[in-house]
């Protein structure tokens, strides 16, 4: 555990809780992609199956349980409790175009051809693109609520911090996981355009809106 890893995990946790609180407090999930949230729930489920097979640390187990619990709570709020506020008409990204190729890739490129390992690899690849339905929704409606942009910013920061974590671990532990690193770089790149808008607009007190 190093400072980048810990800060990354906490940023990830902050993102998840910001989103849950936003939906809960406003009683609305307008502007939130339910599809991205389903993908994240799928990511956590397939990645954290090792909760059942191996114990790493109390911290590790606690965070995994919280991430999974929050992911399903978010999906529940969007598709059940506050379904009436869900932006289904704009949330039209075809997730099969992500899940199917990612599933195929997980079968082809993995560390070990075993069920749990393939599911872990699937979750890593899927996480790197799971935010696309959310970014697609924002590009369709042309705007995002400020609290939604804070959520996205925290998610992006989490990924960027993990890159620093891997640089640290490579130098000090000789740790090197090609699959995680390549997927992590892809995922971070997807946030770059958003980071630019966040810094130039949201941090200057403006609402995030895209030119028509």
């Amino acid at each position: 555990m190093n400072i980048f890893r810990l800060a990354g995990d906490l940023s990830h946790l902050a993102a998840i809780i910001i989103l849950l609180l936003k939906i809960w407090k406003t009683r609305s999930c307008a502007g939130i992609s339910g599809k991205s949230q389903i993908l994240f729930a799928l990511v956590f489920t397939t990645r954290y199956l090792d909760l059942l097979t191996s114990f790493i640390s109390l911290y590790n187990t606690f965070m995994k349980v919280v991430y999974i619990g929050c992911a399903y709570a978010t999906v529940y709020l969007i598709y059940m409790k506050f379904k009436a506020t869900y932006d289904g008409n704009h949330d039209t990204f075809r997730v099969e175009f992500l899940v199917v190729p990612v599933g195929g890739l997980a079968f082809l490129v993995n560390h070990d051809f075993s069920p749990l390992e393939i599911l872990w690899t699937f979750s890593i690849y899927l996480e790197s693109v799971a935010i696309l339905p959310q970014l697609f929704l924002i590009s369709k409606t042309g705007e995002a609520e400020t609290i939604t942009t804070h959520y996205l910013f925290c998610l992006g920061v989490y990924r960027a911090l993990y890159l620093f974590n891997w640089i640290w671990r490579f130098y000090f532990e000789g740790f090197f996981d090609m699959i995680a690193i390549v997927a992590g770089v892809v995922q971070t790149i997807l946030y770059c355009d958003f980071f630019y808008l966040y810094v130039t607009k949201v941090l200057k007190g403006k609402k995030l809106s895209l030119p028509a």
Binding site: R5, D9, H12, R47, D50, T53, S54, I56, N60, M63, K64, Y67, H111, D112, S114, L116, E117, W120, Y162, N165, A180
Partner: peptide, 10 residues
């Protein structure tokens, strides 16, 4: 059934 590769990150 144990994982051959321990994944210690979240």
């Amino acid at each position: 059934y144990a994982l051959k590769i321990p994944h210690d990150e979240l």
